[in-house]
Amino acid sequence: MIKEKLLNIDRRILYGLLILVTVIPLRCDQKLNNITDDYSNAFYEAVSNIPEGKTVFIESDWTTSTRGENSGHLEALLRILMAKKTKFAIFSVGDAQAPGVFRGVLLRLMEERKTLGLPAYQPFEDYVDLGYFANAEGTLQAIGGDVRKVFEKKSIRDAEGKQRSAFDSPVLSNVKSVGDVPMYIVVTASNTIDRAIERLSAKTTLACMCTGVIGPSALPYFQSGQLKGVAIGLKGVFDIEYLMANGLNLETKESVKWSKQPDKTAQPITVGKTLDRGNRYFLSFMCAILLLIATVVTGNVMMFVARAQSKPQGDEA
């Protein structure tokens, strides 16, 4: 009887259970422990040690359909850059809807800084929003060839609201070629990371924050050294937030120890938020994975039991 019931659980009960196991942990404000991945350590170390006064390029190619992963990626990345007062240029080559989404994240972080009493990060002075560029292949090829030609006709508003060329901004004034950019970071939910590797990996240092779906195809590039670091999926968000909170290879007890590269260090972030979306979502994620494993195991065990019981007696000989 129980076996019959377990073999034929109504899918609506399973969905109900999934909602329960994801919602309850979301209400807990529990700080979790973590063993960070090598590629996340490499990412944090690289971003944390960007030389002062340099401008970082962020290619944000995701939309609301992957908000669960990429939003946490971009928030963590921008918090690191803002804490270190690193200037950045942000744009998209993947989707016309992407600028609207990354502008939402920027607004949210500006609001957060205001609430925490931190100085505002000013558009034009501290960062530039360059919008969307159609045709990823062509745009990235052009960025690799002559970055000034690609962005110079992009007019943006300065602090006084006047229309100016993007290269009048202190963010881009020192950028003559893509080689002047110490790091080009792709936050993506699609294969635009492949396009960036093809066209830019020989010209600048690349790093990537991608969804779990894209992760397996991005890892070989980390192995070969074409990507300096990778943050993959929800685990990547949690890893980066955990490293932001605890630092890497430091003398402190909380610091993450990276045994493969003990000579690489990175300080924790001491200004603003560190643990946020990644830490919040990860407990729910673990509970959802446990539910998945439990249902798969139950289903399989019950299937084998039912098969064994329905086997005709003669077959055993």
């Binding site: 999934l18 909602i19 994801t22 919602v23 979301l26 359909s65 992957t66 908000r67 669960g68 992963e69 939003s71 969804t211 779990g212 779906v213 992760g215 397996p216 993959i232 999926g233 929800l234 685990k235 979306r277 919040r280 979502y281 729910s284 994620f285 959802a288 994975i289 998945l292």
Partner: peptide
């Protein structure tokens, strides 16, 4: 990894 991505989407909606 794909399953991980789908769970992340559900968790985000629940949040």
């Amino acid at each position: 990894s794909t399953v991980m991505a789908r769970f992340a989407l559900v968790i985000d909606r629940m949040y």
